[in-house]
């Protein structure tokens, strides 16, 4: 018998917070439950877009940080 899963279970699965056994069960449930599968697809699309929507800082600030690091010579504690 296929277990019933909630939207929150799908989110935990999406963010890889389910154990292997539970992941397999969710995958199996998605094959039989079109609604669950659709929900997973929607969440997965947004997750992917969130990762691609990262904003890049300017080269100027990155160079400034690198220069700061190079200029700082502190005696390292053990």
């Amino acid at each position: 018998m296929t277990k019933t899963f909630t939207q929150d279970d799908v989110i935990r699965y999406l963010y890889q917070e389910t154990a292997e056994k539970e992941s397999n069960e969710i995958e199996k449930a998605m094959l039989c439950d079109a609604r669950l599968q659709e929900m997973y697809k929607e969440f997965a699309l947004i997750k992917k877009d969130l990762s691609r929507a990262l904003k890049q800082p300017s080269e100027r600030v990155i160079n400034s940080i690198l220069n700061y690091s190079k200029s700082l010579n502190l005696p390292s504690k053990p």
Binding site: D8, R12, Y13, E42, A44, I46
Partner: peptide, 30 residues
């Protein structure tokens, strides 16, 4: 915490549809 995340994702999806923002329709493994 999970419920808040769920609402956040659902709200974002609704808003993206509302603004007609096309997102990449390819599904990739998680």
């Amino acid at each position: 915490a999970l419920g808040r995340m769920r609402y956040a994702l659902i709200n974002l999806r609704k808003k993206m549809k509302q603004y007609n923002i096309a997102y990449d329709q390819n599904i990739y493994p998680r």
